[in-house]
């Protein structure tokens, strides 16, 4: 019993130093954005970010509690030369029941919070008044994803193929005399407009993901998958394919460029023109080829 005072004080100091080091190491975790998902492009990405942070805070509390107990045990309960034999405790039923219920309660709370946030993440809202709603008024919904409350969203089909993304503006065809408009790699969309994506693949499995615009959704051959975004800030949002789709998976990049609705209408027309011109050029080439 005699040499106990010093080790105890030393243990306390060690515990404090350890806790301080852990706090220092994890302080940025709690505050900085690099430790939560990307956000800021679309409301669903922001809601996922918030939900992640709530769960992470719960996780950090558990982390400190358990690692703290572990560290405390490691320091405090080291065998000492003159220490007494430990008591032969075999268990404690109330304690077992207690931490079982405690753990169950924590995950129940996380589940409840998830279901509160789920509709905001999953269900597309209406386009804003300064969006493209007067034109992109197609009623579109699926079993997986309800339509916006007023039913109107700009629908784009996203097709993954090795190693490029194709976008079919099937929801904007009334702006181009029902002629098809499509684009590759860069998706141009109007701001303040709810854009609904229907995602599939023409070869292997891919995954559509622009981190700032919300979660990813897999592009699986033979299936349609859905997601949406609504961008308020004009700009370019980058992403890339998230499901291994072959050797050049890393090169399957994508970006979304958001521009004001008026510019978007002009872009549609010019894109339609460009497609027409390239088709004509191709036809002329073929004709020239036949003549030879």
């Amino acid at each position: 019993m005699i040499p106990r005072a010093l080790p105890r004080r030393r243990a306390l100091i060690l515990a404090l130093v350890g806790a301080a080091a852990l706090l220092l190491a994890l302080a940025p975790v709690a505050s900085a954005d690099w430790f939560s998902p990307e956000s800021g492009g679309s409301p669903n990405a922001n809601d996922i970010d918030t939900l992640y942070k709530i769960v992470m805070y719960i996780g950090i509390v558990i982390f400190f509690l358990v690692e703290g107990l572990l560290l405390y045990s490691v320091i405090k309960f080291r065998r000492r030369r003159y220490g007494a034999e430990p008591a032969m405790v075999h268990g404690n039923t109330p304690l077992e029941v207690g931490w079982t219920i405690g753990a169950a309660l924590i995950v129940a709370i996380i589940a409840a919070i998830t279901f509160i946030y789920l509709p905001r993440i999953k269900n597309p809202p209406n386009s804003s008044a300064n969006g493209l709603q007067q034109f992109a008024g197609e009623e579109f919904a699926s079993v997986e994803q309800p339509k916006p409350p007023n039913g109107k969203a700009l629908r784009i089909n996203v097709v993954g193929q090795q190693y490029i993304w194709r976008y079919d503006y099937i929801g904007a065809q009334r702006l181009t005399e029902n002629r098809p408009v499509y684009a590759y790699y860069q998706m141009v969309v109007p701001t303040n407009t709810t854009v609904v994506l229907q995602i599939n693949s023409s070869d292997v499995a891919h995954s559509w993901w622009i981190p700032k615009l919300g979660g990813k959704q897999d592009a699986i051959p033979g299936h349609n998958n859905y997601t949406w975004f609504k961008i308020s800030k004009p700009g370019v949002y980058k992403g890339q394919c998230a499901e291994l789709c072959g050797n050049n998976h890393a090169d399957m990049l994508a970006e979304v460029r958001a521009i004001p609705p008026d510019q978007f209408k002009a872009w549609l027309v010019s894109q339609r023109q460009a497609i027409l011109q390239s088709q004509q050029a191709l036809a002329a080439q073929r004709k020239a080829g036949e003549g030879q």
Binding site: L51, Y52, I62, I121, G214, G215, K216
Partner: peptide, 24 residues
């Protein structure tokens, strides 16, 4: 100490809307 971290990140990625960001 380490398995605990894997367990916590496991629960976080089991939250499926969050997993839409974390998956893959």
């Amino acid at each position: 100490a380490q398995f605990l971290i894997g367990g916590i990140s496991g629960v976080m990625s089991a939250v499926f809307p969050v997993d839409w960001q974390l998956q893959d």
